[in-house]
Nucleic acid binder design. Structure first.
Lengths: 175, 175
DNA sequence: GCGGTTTTTAGAATCGTTCTAATTTGTTAG
DNA sequence: CTAACAAATTAGAACGATTCTAAAAACCGC
């Protein structure tokens, strides 16, 4: 785990702690997963991943932890109605994304026109709303998918898992 | 129906026509409703409204018409995962909205920093994506809800319906 | 009016998410 | 170590929005 990830996990941990909840092993693992991927996993993907370490983990626990993180302002939820919501645990503050409408990948974007928190304030004044967050996403076909459009030979890339192997299949299975 | 609305209905009509589908009475009514409200109705609200004229209308028809309009690029779908999607039939091109997280109202916004189609092109080049649309929304508490926060006496405003009365309850009920 | 196509309908099915009640785990005091 | 209590977790039911399906109804050109 690199430094940035480590640090991010620490942030999430202490945020959850000051919320008054315990950092259980499952929760700790989820923080780790969320902090170390830029793939914006869905609840299901997160579930599959935690299960590699704690196979008895239920989906309810995953949603429960996500809710806590939302409450703590430590996760950004990207809502989709046509598919599962996606989560960004690395950059919990509003920021724009590039969404591929073909392969469903989501990339962080460094906003060209980013208003940022400053601009939210300005807009709040201008509109009379008390604005708390914003969402900006760009939808299109990502470069990889564009290539494959004309290439009938390349099979779609297999989905890599989000984190390295659990130590062994027997060991941590029943925490 | 004012001029702008009339005109918008015409646009939608001809778009649907060139898609090769019939403009049935139900569909015509839906266009009218969509063109004449700025309240960004959900499929359900739309359904309730069409039912005032054609009480036998099923929800499937509403979704079906919405799909046609999407195909024709004549409606903007605002996706929400926690509640029903909302639709903007007046301005089908991407544009920003103010979303009240308390009363769920949605207002069109005139974008302060609007990139617009021009900027989508620019971004497409910059990112390598073939971008087709964008979404920008601001979430917060609207002025009306802010007032009511401290006012325990004001009852929430009753939801007005989207369009004027159907002529009579008996007449057009069974098209 | 007739045959063929399109539209509409009611209700079933689906999918992501939330809820519920029961069980397990963890903690603290004795 | 153990009883008693609180917090976390589980499996599965429930839910709500949307999509699908098969059958009925409406429409069209002749």
């Amino acid at each position: 785990m690199d430094h940035r990830t480590q640090q991010r996990v620490e942030e999430m941990r202490s945020s959850l702690s000051s919320l008054g909840v315990a950092i259980t092993r499952r929760r700790a693992k989820m923080l780790e997963i969320l902090a170390s991927t830029d793939r914006h996993p869905s609840a299901n993907e997160l579930h599959a991943e935690v299960r590699r370490w704690y196979p008895s983990t239920s989906l309810a626990t995953v949603y429960n932890t996500i809710d806590l993180l939302k409450e703590a302002g430590q996760i950004l939820e990207l809502e989709f109605s046509a598919s599962a919501n996606r989560y960004d645990g690395r950059r919990p503050a509003s920021h724009p994304h590039l969404v591929c409408i073909s392969c469903q990948s989501i990339e962080d974007m460094d906003d060209p026109h980013d208003p940022g928190a400053r601009a939210l304030d300005r807009l709040s004044h201008a509109t009379g709303y008390r604005l708390v967050r914003q969402r900006t996403d760009y939808y299109g076909i990502c470069p990889a998918c564009q290539l494959q459009e004309y290439d009938t030979t390349t099979p779609p890339a297999p989905d890599a898992s989000l984190t390295p192997q659990p130590a062994s299949s027997g060991k941590a299975s029943f925490p």
